[in-house]
Design a protein around this nucleic acid. Structure first.
Lengths: 351, 351
DNA sequence: TTTTAGCACTCTCGCTCTTTGAGTGCTAAT
DNA sequence: ATTAGCACTCAAAGAGCGAGAGTGCTAAAA
């Protein structure tokens, strides 16, 4: 679709959207005529606006109100009109301060990033961790806790460490625990948990001989650890910020949105089905999730060593400040890629 | 303060509160007179209600409305009137199903518990992990990841396991990593991180000799691990549920509440300053947090081996269904205490 | 042909006024 | 001590009105 809008129309459209983004109210021709860039009378502007509405870029809440951008309008704005927002050096330094202050596990980094984004943009920040797939255990370790309890520690192929405390029905001594670790390392490393078969099980049984512990529950624990369908892959931070926007003072709308957040799986699908490295902008009903048809979503996947390890983004009203949000999301995503690479091991190639 | 309320007054008060809890509207004398338990006319009830108001148990939104329970009324209800709600076997079995389906790390268990509670009660569920204090490391372990990276695994005195990946500036081999673990075990176990002094540091230095790794950054990492000021100790689940209650359709109120959630530290103080094992019920302005003066909070600390490892609770409108919520919170808290104690690994019954 | 001034028209918003009805307090009778 | 009856109060809901912002259209000006 080639843009058939005259320069003046673009100017007017941009002015309308800019204005509407910042105060949320319909924009009238008289107000626009005060804009020096648009050097013509309100009557002319009215004509242009009528045509812009005709073409679908604008809408009228009612016949005697100003115009409001339509989704098509926002889309056009985002694709062609929006001028890149560059963060001030103050913003950047503040951001760096917060982000660098803690380099911890991936979860924590993401969470604090969500918070920072939320504060910076005054919308709701969200983070996503993709469902693990093809993850195998690179190394096992065990740790004696007490005579009935030991800990299983697992290094995964994504470089993450997971632990699990296991309570045994039998008394175990340190050597038993050590042997369990060795047995696991001999049998279950680098094996997709779905491919654990009877021979492997038997092998594990054999190696566990002498330890009063059965192989099958152990394998189940390992399996769960890898598959960890936590449901905790999606987090959001700063919902309260949305309450400041009149579009969410209608409680129903907010409720819908929050339900979408709680649903998680739906939103996860949306985010994970996104392709490419660009910042994704999903405006209103472009979102397959009906609950989010009144909001916009901006997010960017985070890759470490080429593989996506998560995504961060912002949810806000449809009239969100796209330029600014894009800049923030992009900046933070890039920062995270660096800082997670430092902390996180690039996946070893085990074949 | 001894209760000087006649049986009939109690009956009336209870009926008013029960009714108000379920529909949120002021209760009138005529409605109450239909209640068979209260065998008297609306006029009599009116007199009683006037006296109950006089005594501070009821309030009148305006002079020609029904009565609404005051905080004192709720308090009395909770302390003396409320009849214990017992969960239906259906509810219990459903609950067990959800809770037992995943037995994972503390964080995850708590999170899923919050969700379950939220669904069951239709209010917002929250979980709290206390600020660690007096926690020491019981045992260290290390795990070789790659030549520039190893993992530190720590068993704390609360029985928790924490891990941290450490990237070293120098090439380390497996033996180095093992030696680091041993050195830590020899020097830093059972020592409060605040009490690490120069002699201990020197001792650690000495034991690390030959490994190109400095003691002080290592100690700092251990310190952080224990103190873990993640800010992530408080989680909530199901805010959207609150939107169903008209008392929160005033966006301002909801915003206040959400701010309290985001603040975290305040709410954390409230929960952690609670003593005893009982279910705590904090009604409206009993809560030192002003933001929560329009809501009620019910929570219970979770102890494992006598030590508090967290708390779970529910936040809802002041007129929340105390009886039911108490029952749910109590039940789930007890369930959690069992399941967080460890993961039984017993051979015979697994399904 | 394009732009502009002018004007009638439309529709929301906020205001007041009224009506309605639920619920009360009080009084007098039971 | 309880109850029936009645006058009273007050919020909520609706009707009516004026103001004001913004439009579309027309006819004149550029």
């Amino acid at each position: 679709m080639l843009s058939e809008l005259s320069e003046r129309k673009k100017l007017i459209l941009k002015a309308i959207i800019d204005s509407h983004i910042h105060n949320g109210e319909p924009v009238g021709s008289k107000y626009l005529s005060e804009n020096k860039q648009i050097a013509c009378s309100s009557a002319t502007i009215r004509n242009e606006m009528a045509e812009l509405e005709e073409a679908g870029y604008l809408e009228q809440p009612h016949s005697s109100a100003g115009r409001v951008p339509s989704e098509k309008g926002y889309r056009f704005y985002v694709d062609e009109l929006m001028q890149q927002y560059s963060m001030t050096s103050g913003e950047i330094s503040e951001l760096n301060k917060i982000l660098s202050s803690k380099h911890n596990e991936a979860d924590v980094i993401l969470e604090s990033a969500a918070k920072v984004m939320s504060v910076m943009t005054n919308y709701t920040g969200l983070t996503v961790r993709p469902k693990p797939s093809g993850v195998v255990v690179t190394r096992f370790d065990t740790m004696y806790v007490d005579e009935l309890c030991f800990a299983l520690i697992v290094l995964t192929s994504t470089g993450e460490i997971k632990t699990k405390k296991i309570r045994s029905g039998y008394v175990l001594d340190i050597n038993d625990v050590k042997r369990i670790g060795e047995a696991l390392n001999m049998t279950l490393t680098n094996i997709d948990p779905d491919n654990i078969n009877v021979p492997i099980m038997l092998e594990l049984e054999k190696r566990l001989e002498g330890v009063e512990l059965l192989a099958s529950p152990l394998v189940k624990i390992v399996y769960d650890l890898l598959r960890q369908a936590d449901g905790s892959e999606l987090k959001y931070e700063g919902v309260n910020r949305l309450l400041e926007y009149p579009e969410f003072s209608d409680t129903e709308k907010l409720k819908h949105l929050l339900e979408a957040f709680d649903n998680k799986s739906g939103l996860l699908d949306v985010v994970s089905s996104a392709v490419g490295d660009d910042t994704n902008i999903i405006i209103g009903s472009e979102n397959p999730l009906n609950e989010m048809n009144d909001s916009s979503l901006i997010f960017k996947t985070i890759r470490v060593g080429g593989k996506p390890v998560g995504a961060i983004g912002i949810v806000g009203p449809r009239r969100m400040d796209y330029a600014r949000v894009c800049a923030v999301v992009k900046y933070i995503a890039e920062k995270l890629e660096v800082s997670m690479d430092g902390n996180m091991l690039s996946p070893p190639d085990e074949n």
